[in-house]
Design a protein around this nucleic acid. Structure first.
Length: 855
RNA sequence: GCGGGCGUGAUGGAAUGGUAGACAUACCAGACUUAAAAUCUGUUGGGCCUUGUGCCCGUGUGGGUUCGAGUCCCACCGCCCGCACCA
């Protein structure tokens, strides 16, 4: 009698699938297509259990859709450019390219044993010249359509290492290597004009019915459309060339509460003052210190510098407001200048308290008192308030009404105009790094910035410098210092010129890979027929951490590619449905070291007894459950070890069970063990099916359960309720195990069970299918369909509540009418006792659900 | 700081506004065994007594809406994710 040995059956069936080319995506026949995609991985060197969960979910969808008669496209690739490769080269020598491709080989080798139904013939890495060459072609097309341009932008500058730092390389405002205080510095950089599409990207969110609402909300907030007023304060005795300060506000209704005008340290006025006044220069230099992230700027102490300049209030010319340079005002947003209204804004309130500026209210609550000096009054814009210093509109109105009235009033009085602004900034794509896609332009002394000719693409990264592999231990960008790579003839005039040495943000690489998968070897970015057939991605699956940037950039790219003719109109929104999955977590086992710092222990060194953990020497460890996996905390689970211990099917089964897919799941050794035991049990049931004779009642009962299981499991798979499907599969397995049905009925039930398990545990399913004489491969078998006639129940059990508390239940025919149900409910012994003879005030009968008696 | 989310037994979690705790883990008890492992069966939210088709309490905390709230609304607490050069 054969036992369940995953190590034997898994390679066998993987070979069978490869042999039959079951997972090759073909656009043939008249089947509908289905494109399922998981966010492709960064080739860090090893797959982790989070990848296993992500790809298993996609695989369940892919296999299910294949079984329900679709041509499925389910590809895999690598997001292969980026800093870790350069960091590795700096730390350990070697070359980013060698490091990356070696990692890809390792990861493919680790992924294949998991048995994912991927079309490996379509695999590519974004660092393949065949891929990034097409990306350069896209860049040139975007340039032609005016979707790319150059302007100055602020970067993190390390004054000691003389290099640009990524945000993650800035720790507490200091460079990670040098420890020097980071400065904000301006460079000329390339930008995608994503802001041109702000309105469309925002409005189209409403059409994304199968995206999580939270992702849509996050994107809407990120794009941030606001209606406001742009107007100018006239400057009293301003320096040469400055007679006004242009500001933008979303709350023009609070203009009468203005206490000061604030400008960014990068505002033209501040820049001019800086030239002649060392104090201003010192303040601006200080304000520019620290990282460029919004978080760093928001969290920094709010500092202001009184320029001594004054502006006149547009509606009360006797009123003069001071002009401050303030470190929390961003030049990128609005006009880089604001007016501060401390009565109705927390930050302005803090600022005015600090610099002893007046705090005036412009509106008060309809009832109740408020101490505006102690705290600002900031009600929702939709709330009605009483205006004490009114610009326009009714005395009592909502903030929104007052804003609209104020804009109209200001416009008709020639004070500024109403404008719609977006928070979304253009996408800076320039990176001063080696390991990325070169930007295909040439700088010519005569012709300026000239796009490279398409026939010269790809502009490849050089592997060597001066005959030797590039040395990454030397600081600076290797492309910048390369002896020959920079030299290129100007594509316009042919004279010697210099290549652009900046490379592209890796977000560019991941913004169109989904389109490339439809024709991965083409010598154009896409092929019209393939894109038309396979796009859009029907189901996209990935982490919530990509909710904003990656998905927004991809939506922009799809539109831009459509503008350039690389994608059809229907692909302007490339992802039909999005699912964001949770992490796989694992307990941390820690003790305190002699120095009081935590010491982290590997799970395999821990004995678990009664929910407590002990080391081999008997010392108890502290267990921190459900922690994010981290190498430094020693709580990482290696999929390779899990597969060799239990097999791929166990790993797949476990990561889908227990938790709903969108939530985190905790990996536990006990849970993995239980999953393995269960799969062995299912295998045993199939092998030991016996030869019991038919038994009509038992057989029908089992088949009824089978149809119920088909219905419930299908519903779960359809709605991403994989954990619910698995719970049903446990239940159905228990039913089969306990059933006294005949062997024939059990065979039927077990074959259905195998089919229902096939998306999750495909190897075991094939094995059982073959054992029970199923035809062909289960991977190619059609999905079972529940017979409605077998699902009909004649009677239902309804709970009876008295005042919302359950007091009993009755079993009644399915279609019994309400009055009859009510009579039976009131006659129920325990219900009658609870009523104590009192007449119920009301009886609510929800057919098929519940009865509630109200006393 | 700003934006988004989550919070249910010892544990992971289930529950279209309608019987809270499905399914699983762990624990306990039993069967099989010389024994153990494996396997199989059963019990388990807390409390009370009058042991019943019983009663009270119970879904982070405090309020509210409803015949009925884990689910909807408001406030608070805790944790997680994102914040534009990490991928």
């Amino acid at each position: 009698m054969s036992r369940y040995v995953a190590a034997e059956i898994e390679p066998k069936w993987q070979a069978a699938w490869t042999e039959a080319e079951v997972f090759r995506a073909r656009r043939t026949g008249d089947k509908p297509k289905y494109y399922v995609l998981e966010m492709f991985p960064y080739p860090s060197g090893r797959i982790h259990i989070g990848h296993v969960r992500n790809y298993t979910m996609g695989d369940v969808v892919a296999r299910y859709k294949r079984a329900t008669g679709h041509n499925v496209l389910h590809p895999m690739g690598f997001d292969a450019f980026g800093m870790p490769a350069e960091n590795a080269a700096m730390a350990n020598g070697g070359h980013p390219r060698d490091w990356t491709y070696a990692n890809i080989d390792t990861m493919v080798e680790q992924m294949k044993p998991l048995g994912f139904s991927l079309d490996w013939t379509r695999m590519f890495a974004t660092c393949d010249p065949e891929y990034y060459g097409q990306q350069q072609a896209l860049f040139l097309d975007f340039l032609e359509k005016g979707l790319v341009y150059r302007k100055n932008a602020v970067v993190n500058w390390d004054p000691v290492d003389m290099t640009v730092l990524a945000n993650e390389q800035v720790e507490d405002g200091r460079g990670w290597r040098s420890g020097a205080l980071v400065e904000r510095r301006e460079l000329t950089q390339w930008f995608f004009k994503i802001s041109d599409m702000s309105g469309e990207l925002l409005d189209a969110l409403d059409t994304l019915d199968n995206w999580p609402a939270k992702v849509k909300t996050m994107q809407a907030n990120w794009i941030g459309r606001s209606r406001g007023l742009q107007f100018a304060f006239s400057l009293i005795d301003g320096p040469h060339g400055h007679d006004r300060v242009e500001v933008y506000t979303t709350r023009p209704d609070t203009l009468m509460g203005a206490s000061f005008v604030g400008i960014s340290p990068d505002h033209p006025l501040a820049r001019d003052l800086e030239k002649s006044d060392p104090d201003v220069a010192a303040f601006c230099a200080e304000a520019r210190q620290g990282g460029t992230t919004e978080e760093a700027i928001e969290k920094a102490d709010k500092l202001g510098y009184d320029t001594g300049l004054r502006v006149r209030h547009p509606f009360d010319t006797s009123l003069e407001l001071p002009v401050y340079i303030a470190n929390f005002i961003l030049m990128d947003y609005g006009t880089g200048a604001i007016f501060g209204c401390p009565g109705h804004d927390q930050r302005d309130h803090d600022f005015c308290r600090k610099y002893d500026l007046p705090i005036i209210d412009t509106f008060v609550p309809l009832d109740g008192e408020i101490d505006i000096q102690a705290a600002p009054y900031v009600p929702p814009k939709s709330e009605k308030v009483r205006y004490t210093r009114l610009i326009a509109g009714e005395e009592v109105q909502t903030g929104q009404e007052a804003v609209n009235a104020a804009v109209d009033f200001c416009e008709s009085n020639g004070v500024g105009q109403g404008v719609t602004k977006f928070r979304l900034r253009d996408w800076g794509l320039s990176r001063q790094r080696y390991w990325g896609c070169p930007i295909p332009v040439v700088h010519c002394d005569d012709c300026g910035v000239v796009p490279e000719k398409k026939e010269n693409l790809p502009i490849q990264l050089p592997y060597d410098e001066g005959g030797k592999p590039i040395d990454f231990s030397i600081p600076g960008n290797p492309l910048d210092r390369h002896p020959t790579w920079r030299d290129a003839p100007c594509p316009a005039c042919g004279k010697p010129a210099r290549r652009e040495t900046d490379t592209m943000d890796t977000f560019v690489d991941s913004s169109w890979y989904f389109a490339r998968f439809t024709a991965p070897r083409a010598d154009t970015p896409t092929v019209a027929e393939d894109a038309a057939y396979w796009m859009n991605v029907d189901q996209y699956i990935g982490g919530i951490e990509h909710a904003i940037l990656h998905l927004l950039y991809s939506r922009f790219f799809a539109r831009a590619m459509n503008v350039c003719g690389h994608l059809p109109d229907k692909t302007r929104e490339p992802f039909e449905a999005l699912f964001t999955q949770g992490m796989v977590t694992h307990a941390i086992y820690q003790t305190k070291g002699a120095d009081g710092r935590p010491v982290y222990h590997y799970p395999e060194d821990i004995d678990l007894r009664d929910g407590r953990g002990y080391l081999k020497d008997g010392a108890e460890v502290e267990i921190i459950p459900s922690a994010k996996m981290s190498k430094s905390k020693n709580n990482v689970v290696d999929p390779v070890a899990i597969i060799s211990q239990y097999g791929a099917d166990t790993a797949r089964w476990f990561v889908l069970s227990d938790s709903p897919p969108e939530r985190d799941v905790e990996w536990t050794a006990a849970g993995a063990e239980a999953a393995a035991k269960h799969l062995a049990r299912v295998h045993r049931l199939a092998v030991e099916i016996g030869d019991a004779p038919a038994d009509e009642a038992e057989d029908i009962a089992l088949l009824r359960e089978m149809h119920k299981a088909i219905k419930d499991v299908t519903l779960g798979v359809d709605s991403f309720g994989f954990n619910a499907s698995i719970a049903k599969l446990y239940g159905f397995t228990n039913t089969i195990a306990k059933s006294r049905a005949g062997a024939q009925a059990k065979r039927t039930a077990l074959k259905s069970l195998a089919q229902l398990m096939a998306p999750m545990t495909p190897h075991l399913a094939e094995e059982i299918w073959a054992t029970l004489g199923g035809e062909g491969l289960i991977a190619e078998a059609p999905w079972p369909v529940a017979d409605d006639a077998m699902l009909v129940e004649d009677t239902i059990t309804m709970p009876i509540q008295v005042n919302g508390k359950r007091r009993g239940e009755i079993t009644v025919p399915k279609d019994m009418d309400k009055a009859e149900v009510e009579k039976l409910a009131l006659a129920h012994e325990n219900v009658a006792r609870t009523l104590e003879g009192a007449q119920p005030k009301k009886v609510i009968v929800v057919p098929g659900r519940i009865v509630n008696v109200v006393m």
